[in-house]
Amino acid sequence: MILVAVLAAVAMPKFDAALGLRSDAWRDEVVSALRHAHQTAVSHRRLVCAVVGSTSVTLTIAANNPATTCGSSLPGPDGGSAYTTSTGGTTASLSPAGTLYFQPNGRVTSDGAGSTASDRSITIGSTSIVVVGETGHVR
């Protein structure tokens, strides 16, 4: 019994710290994906769509400009396969829900046509990521 109590007292804080690191890593991946979407939309002058699920982020890009939908997978930063990032264990929630449309002018809107700028908040564990609609800034 004493051995179990000692192990619990020593191991539990380390286990909590490991879970915190996983949450921080997932948050950093989401921020990186959203910043990549913003930079790509502006530099390629095309609509980029970001779908933030509870455990993944997927980026797609429009084939031409102007466009109101994204139809092609956006390659990752290495130029390889489609940009998709996911985690196991830590979940994200987007408010308000829906696709983030990164416009060629840098704005983030609630629709592909770009008529309404939309601030978004993504919660991961106890931290949140804010996407400013008018500027596309991710913080």
Rank of each mutant, 00 (worst) to 15 (best):
N64I: 12
G98L: 09
N65Q: 11
L94D: 05
V52M: 05
P75H: 00
G125V: 03
V4I: 15
V31C: 08
A8G: 15
T69P: 12
P77K: 04
A5H: 09
I122L: 11
D78N: 13
D28L: 15
P13K: 00
G133A: 09
G88T: 14
S54A: 12
P104H: 11
A17I: 01
A17P: 03
V138H: 07
T55Q: 09
V42Y: 09
G88L: 08
L3Q: 12
V48L: 07
P66H: 06
D28Q: 15
A11G: 11
V30G: 06
I2R: 13
T55C: 02
G112F: 12
A37Y: 06
L59S: 10
V138N: 08
S73I: 03
L74T: 01
V108N: 01
R22Q: 14
S81V: 06
V57Q: 04
V10Q: 06
L21W: 04
G114C: 06
V48D: 10
A11K: 07
G114F: 08
R120W: 02
A92L: 03
C70M: 08
S56E: 00
V108R: 02
V10Y: 07
R22C: 04
S93T: 14
T91D: 09
V52P: 06
G79V: 05
L19D: 02
F15I: 13
R139T: 08
T60L: 11
G89C: 10
L74R: 02
T84G: 02
